[in-house]
């Protein structure tokens, strides 16, 4: 078992006097095998991004356990956690904003290698960076650029390369394509899938788009209001959704081009 999440709860105190309590994540439990992709679907604001950050211990849970390869992360000190970070990584939603705006790509890509001393020499570092670039479909001409000189898709490729540099065992992808165009989304999704299979990475893939989830996941979990309302294999969820919310979500998917405007007038009116 790669990841095991048990009864995870996160409360936030809100309001001027911090006296109201909002439960962002409510008693979530699931597990993830090595090399498996679990798709997490839900509307914006349902707590899926909070859950992602909880699993990676970027924020502290109010209650519950997260185990990585059997080791309970909630007990670890900051220093011990820092060592484990290499194995668990995250890809964010806003590709351009997830890179340091004043760092050239060459530097951004070399940073994880230097941080964990994964390369012995400057030459080896250059070689590894070049290899990473090719792996995500970019070329050396991009090395001297700054993040704002890249398109959204290219920036997301860089973010992926940075994550791959560490050879992690587990990745959280937090809506990595929701800000991208359909065509670029396809490029990034197939790249993620290819890399994940090649490197046998366990992945929690978060999205609001059921079609995307269907394309990339082995299993699917549906989240509503901080709770997991349904979880099952991809086939189960899409063929025989049980929970009313899952049924509602699958109803928002439109397939193309079998349904056109004329056929959909009843839907529109």
């Amino acid at each position: 078992m790669l990841i095991e999440v048990k009864d995870l709860v996160k409360d936030y105190r809100v309001g001027i006097l911090k006296n109201r309590c909002v439960r962002a994540v409510d008693c979530v439990s699931f597990s993830l095998q090595v090399g498996e992709t679990l798709g997490l679907v839900g509307e914006s604001g349902c707590g899926k991004s909070t859950l992602a950050r909880l699993i990676l211990m970027l924020i502290k849970p109010t209650f519950g356990r997260v185990c990585f390869e059997g080791q309970d992360l909630t007990d670890l000190s900051q220093a011990e956690l820092l060592k484990l970070r290499r194995e668990m990584q995250i890809v964010f939603q806003q590709p351009q904003q997830s890179l340091h705006p004043r760092m050239k790509l060459a530097e951004s890509l070399a940073e994880p290698l230097r941080l964990y001393k994964l390369v012995k020499s400057k030459a080896a570092e250059k070689e590894r960076v070049r290899h990473l670039l090719h792996e995500v479909g970019l070329s050396e001409e991009h090395l001297e650029r700054y993040p704002h000189e890249l398109s959204g898709g290219q920036a997301q490729r860089v973010a992926l390369a940075r994550v791959l540099a560490l050879k992690p065992k587990f990745i959280v992808a937090d809506e990595p394509t929701s800000m991208l165009d359909v065509a670029v989304q396809a490029q990034i999704l197939s790249l993620i899938k290819k890399l994940q299979q090649e490197h046998k990475i366990g992945m929690l893939f978060i999205s609001h788009d059921l079609e995307v989830i269907r394309g990339i996941s082995d299993r699917v979990a549906v989240m509503q209001g901080g709770k997991l309302v349904e979880m099952g294999s991809k086939e189960q969820i899409f063929r025989e959704p049980q929970h009313p919310y899952t049924k509602f979500l699958t109803g928002t998917v439109f397939e193309l081009p079998t349904r056109l405007k004329r056929d959909n007038l009843r839907l529109v009116h």
Partner: peptide, 14 residues
Amino acid sequence: QAEFVEGARALGNS
């Protein structure tokens, strides 16, 4: 709150 700072934390920066 910026994603690149959160990303740096996730990467394991002190």
